[in-house]
Simulated scan of single mutants.
Amino acid sequence: MLLLSEDQTRDALPFPDLIDALAEMFRTGCEMPTRHHHDMEVPGEPDGTMLLMPAWLPGGFAGVKVVNVMPGNSKRDLPAVAAQYLLSDARTGAMLALVDGGELTARRTAAASALAARYLARSDARHLLVVGTGRLAANLVAAHMAVRPIEEVTIWGRSLEKAEALARDLRVRFPVAIQAAASLEDALGNADIVSAATLSTEPLICGKAVKPGTHVDLVGAFKPTMRESDDDLIRRARIFVDTREGCLSEGGDIVQPLNSGVISKADVKADLFELCRKEHPGRQSGEEITLFKSVGAALEDLAGAILAYRNAER
């Protein structure tokens, strides 16, 4: 059985290939039972979450990811997400690979955002704003650069010091202009793509600050109690999701405005299945604001794990 470290998993999942692999899996589909979602009490800290995410291609590959999401790790300078992915042969049951789940999760999450941006961001989008300074931030920059001609990146975080440190690190890795922002409102008004990856329970992305034509990508807030966007943005934007089942039950950016009557289920225009199968055209004008909400799906992990296994085997 292959054991893929964090570095080996990263090397086996280049973003252009990973985005294409996700597109193909959303187009063709796989078996994907409802994931297990369990809150875990952590005394003196916010609750952690354990996720069990199975998926399989009949007669092909099967896999399951075990994920622990621990918000309190931010105070320990540790990643909030710890995970492993076990890939097996769906015909024989043989265990094929244990893939670093944290790197797989970070890269497939960013790749799903970039896949959505293929359909929803303007083709000339050049200025990317990343909201959040965690592990996903650098991956979101790399993934969006794989699908749009990004020339400028702005980083905003609750800690300006952390945002500036991340900007310095990213300047070494990417050949574009990169800076930290002290004002989120000002940064929102200048961005073509806004990609937020936080564990916020209060809205950060205000609709009044977002200019026409912007694509907003909401990656964090994976629980109904969490939220990154306000009602004004939800009202102004055309809404898309990774999966309807997941976002209508788990993503607070969709669940909360649904429960309050701000939107209805009909306001969710399409998911990635429909976009990848060309059942919806995606962005339809240069002036509309598009919003993509993701909570993650087991088929994304399966697609990424298969790609990592095949690349590592080669």
Rank of each mutant, 00 (worst) to 15 (best):
A106Q: 07
R173G: 05
V153S: 00
A181V: 08
A114L: 10
L199Q: 13
A112P: 06
H127V: 09
M145E: 10
H144M: 15
N190F: 12
A163P: 07
L140E: 04
Y119F: 15
A117R: 01
V141H: 04
G157W: 09
N139K: 14
E185T: 14
D192W: 03
A196T: 14
D89V: 07
A146K: 01
V131Y: 04
V131L: 05
V99R: 07
A143C: 03
W156E: 01
A163G: 08
A114K: 08
L128G: 08
A137M: 01
S195Y: 07
A125G: 06
A142K: 14
L199R: 14
A110M: 05
H144F: 13
L170N: 08
A191F: 07
S123C: 13
V141Y: 05
A97Q: 10
A97I: 09
E152G: 00
G101P: 01
G102L: 02
A117H: 11
L115D: 08
A196F: 09
S123Y: 12
M95E: 12
L199V: 15
T198R: 01
A163R: 06
G101S: 00
K162F: 09
L166A: 08
L160F: 14
S195W: 08
E161R: 12
L136R: 03
S159F: 10
D186G: 00
V176Y: 10
L128Q: 06
L140G: 03
A187Y: 02
